[in-house]
Design a protein around this nucleic acid. Structure first.
Lengths: 208, 208
DNA sequence: CGAACTCTTGAGGTTAATCAATTCCTGTGG
DNA sequence: CCACAGGAATTGATTAACCTCAAGAGTTCG
């Protein structure tokens, strides 16, 4: 999932966060929108006992919006050095009130996100571990458009995949090994390359 | 979850659907928004082999929007006799382009939905069956505001709960029996009443 | 080179699914 | 009003998928 929103005016405060820095937490007052300029971030929610669910990943161009509540509703952490432009919430609100185009663009991006979240509900609620991982790999592979196949972002660890897919790292690891044995992917260092997208798609659509 | 959006002008086509009628499907061109006037609907996605995930329920006042794609991305079925006002997508788009207020309202409602979906991702990915059902019951109880406690809508079957929570009807049934034994809820006919919201909340926050 | 992670693999346990009866409603027709 | 049929819900026994715990292998980086 990506939080795509058309680029905004570049006024506002630039900030840089170090790898692993948590720059947004669930109980923080939501005063800023963050527009990612460079780097990547993971968005997640946690339960009191430490269980974590990754909501999505944010890349260059995405906007992490302050939702219409007093607090952020999820946390965000830099996956590597992260540069953002901070847009104060009132500033953004004013922009939405005065420019129908800006508001329509935000609405459109919010709806794209809704569609992708609906698909994730289906995935987490009804798909097997094998199907989830295949879906994830295909999503990573085509995250820049359906043209070429990209490897999985090496900043995404097994633990991240597990927390994204509602599984454990061990299960993810075992399934990656299985996919490797079946020649669906290759693994060199931390990089995962998709070798056979068609058969991955078959796993998603048509479990055996 | 509800799909709240401020009331819209009442021009547009009124339609009525019978109980169980599927008036929106995933592969149908998305030409209309449906504004629910009376009755209720379940929104869901399905896999080719029949597995179903309920995305949410829509009640009076909610709007089922045509998302910015060529097709609806999920299906909807009347839970009982359903009355809707159909708003053609181009009409709505024009409204959004000319009235910043209308667009801002839609954006705000979309963002509310995003927040609730984030919580559902956490639920489906990381909570146990017991925690999920407790969360669901509390959500049903407080769906009209945090004032009073409502019983679960009797139009929601065990199968619906299961498909909402990513479980099976058997598991839902067993857990309801357990909650009943523990005096957390009462069951008379199909109606489920919450007896002890505090202990249900304890189950959600603090699994034993 | 070695310490600290991260990842992989194995063995065994748990949760929830599956399969299979019954029981309980609900609505219909006698 | 009661009998009956069909569906929905409950309950039980068993299985399967995934998790947990544990150990070892591979990476990364000082």
């Amino acid at each position: 999932m990506s939080l795509v929103q058309p680029s905004l005016s570049s006024d506002g405060m630039k900030r840089t966060f170090a790898e692993r820095q948590e720059f947004m937490t669930e109980d923080m007052p939501a005063s800023m929108h963050f527009h990612v300029v460079a780097g990547g971030a993971r968005l997640f929610k946690s339960l009191p006992d430490g269980r974590r669910q990754i909501i999505g990943f944010a890349h260059k161009g995405d906007v992490l919006p302050a939702y219409p509540c007093t607090h952020y509703h999820c946390s965000a952490e830099a996956m590597r050095t992260l540069q953002v432009v901070c847009i104060p919430a009132p500033h953004m609100r004013q922009l939405h009130e005065t420019s129908p185009g800006a508001c329509a663009a935000s609405l459109s991006s919010a709806r794209q996100l809704l569609v992708s979240l609906h698909n994730r509900l289906l995935m987490l609620g009804r798909q097997t571990a094998r199907e989830r991982l295949a879906t994830f790999l295909l999503g990573q592979g085509t995250r820049m458009g359906p043209g070429a196949l990209w490897p999985v972002d090496p900043a995404i660890s097994r633990a991240d995949m597990a927390d994204f897919l509602g599984l454990t790292t061990e299960t993810v690891s075992r399934l990656l090994s299985a996919f490797h044995r079946e020649q669906l992917i290759s693994r060199e260092r931390r990089a995962i390359h998709i070798l056979d997208p068609d058969r991955l798609r078959a796993i998603v659509a048509h479990p055996e």
